[in-house]
Amino acid sequence: MDTTDLPEENELIQRLINHDQQLFVTVVKAWHPSLYSVAAAIVGHSIADEVVQEAWVSVIKALPKFEGRSALKTWVTRIVANEAKNRYRKKSRSVSLESVDENWSTDSRMVSDPRFDSSGHWNQRNPAWDIGSPDELLAAGELQDCVDKHLTRLPDQQKYIMELRDSAGMGMEEICNILEVSSSNARVLLHRARDKIQQVVAKFQRTGEC
């Protein structure tokens, strides 16, 4: 998680309670990427900023009563998740449970994977990539457009778990609590999403096509 030059926990809490305005804005900015991921994972991207903002308003009110039983960031994250869940409930009464369950299910796991033969060996030797660092991957514009395209196509729950884990850096236990999913399901969904993106990059490396 983000710890960009913030003071250590006790000092952070004291200064925030004592209305250090500059520090407050720094914290809002530093934590936004991961708080945003949490909100977006639950309510989608269109109102994620709004949810984070509302959650901060609650945090401001509750801060003097903060008891320090968990880290401040964990506490704030939980408030964001609760705010998002409330919105989600209001918004999603029309969404059928069936479609939600289908997304969460891990039964649809592909039995046959074209990469492997019937005995589970690679059909073709897995070629090495030309690109060897994450920064080089990120600098390849067309590749990133391709990755973005496939990210938006991932089933929501896969995408959310991957965002929380790999973008926001949250622990699996916390993710499971927030999204109310079992840890075995979460692991399968996380891996499926990562594996999909690995295949997207691999195909692009091999063919130059998305």
Partner: peptide, 9 residues
């Protein structure tokens, strides 16, 4: 993925 999409406030 960890360095991508860092949504700013």
């Amino acid at each position: 993925l960890g360095r991508k999409h860092h949504h700013q406030a």
